[in-house]
């Protein structure tokens, strides 16, 4: 059970979409695939949901081989593609009934699984899907993907383009589903959502950079990171970029994250340097690496 991906490679024309991707997901795990657009997340989802065939490598989903047992996989997985993929001209209820029917089940049969999500949209059940807000569409899509009680649930960027409130609600729903024993693979470009997964894989340009729990993955960060601020962020960035000892300089919201090449780094020295560059109200503080720092360090 769970999911096993071994050395999967896939290319389109000249572009390598996936290169030697390997990871295993334990049954009941909530696994995150974190990476920007074009990293190969959707291609990987399509291979695992039997929509595409990999050039190389093998994979099993819930114990079934993606190539040989594709029919069994289609009976046992739920898939929510990145694009909203329901019938806009059908109502909430009609969409759900339709998907229940083609999976050979009924809404009543697995109602307990979707109940706490469905009650939120049930008041609008006669409204057409095309007229729903982003958050409601997403809840409906999740209901449709769950209606046949899948063993594994694939969610491709479910929170892209959704406002923060709906995003939070959505992750709460996933956490509750997890208690029902469903294995989940979720992809997202948001680094802050990574923390909500059991384990994450960082992916860029078709390659897995690192796989670990969100807590441990930041421990791989090799250097101390300093938060630098001053009265003019642009000047901070340009000054730090010119500083001969910099290892990395990344704006991070109102701060700039700075790492130094040397093992013995002196805050005072940098402070002076920035002052010489005409900056005022300078603060330099040690800070903890985030998943995004780790991602950038690995992707360099």
């Amino acid at each position: 059970m769970g999911l096993k991906v071994n050395n999967i490679s896939k290319s389109f024309k000249k572009v390598n979409a996936l290169e030697q991707v390997t990871f295993h997901i334990k049954p009941g795990e909530l696994f995150g695939l974190i990476g920007p657009d074009g990293a190969g997340k959707t291609t990987l989802f399509r291979i695992l949901t039997t929509l595409l065939i990999a050039d190389k490598g093998s994979a099993t989903v819930a114990g079934y081989d993606v190539l040989k047992d594709y029919k069994s996989i289609r009976n046992n997985v739920g898939y929510m593609p990145g694009k909203f993929s329901l019938y806009q001209d059908l109502t909430i209820e009609e969409n759900l009934t339709f998907f229940a029917t083609i999976f050979g089940t009924t809404i009543e049969e697995n109602y307990n699984l979707i109940e706490d999500i469905y009650v939120q949209i049930e008041p609008f059940k006669n409204r057409r899907a095309g007229k729903l807000s982003g958050g409601m569409k997403q809840k409906l899509a999740l209901c449709c993907a769950l209606i046949h009680k899948p063993k594994v649930l694939f969610l491709d960027e479910p929170t892209t383009g959704v406002d923060p409130v709906s995003r939070k609600e959505f992750w709460d729903m996933l956490k509750r589903l997890q208690t029902k024993g469903i294995t989940m693979l979720v992809s997202t470009p948001y680094m802050d959502e990574a923390a909500l997964c059991d384990r994450i894989a960082l992916i860029q340009e078709g390659k897995i950079l690192e796989i670990d729990t969100p807590k441990s993955i930041v421990k791989h960060y090799p250097k101390p990171i300093y938060n630098v601020t001053a009265n003019n962020t642009y000047k901070v960035i340009t000054s730090l970029n010119m500083y001969p000892f910099n290892h990395s300089v990344y704006p991070f919201g109102e701060h700039v994250h700075y790492t130094d090449k040397r093992d013995s780094f002196n805050i005072k020295e940098l402070h002076n340097y920035l002052e010489q560059n005409g900056l005022k109200n300078i603060t330099i503080q040690k800070t903890k690496a985030t998943i995004e720092d780790t991602f950038m360090e690995l992707a360099r």
Binding site: P36, D37, A39, Q204, Y250, F295, M296, A299
Partner: peptide
């Protein structure tokens, strides 16, 4: 939106 972290910076 959706751009990789380094390019975004």
């Amino acid at each position: 939106g959706g751009v990789d972290p380094i390019t975004r910076r």
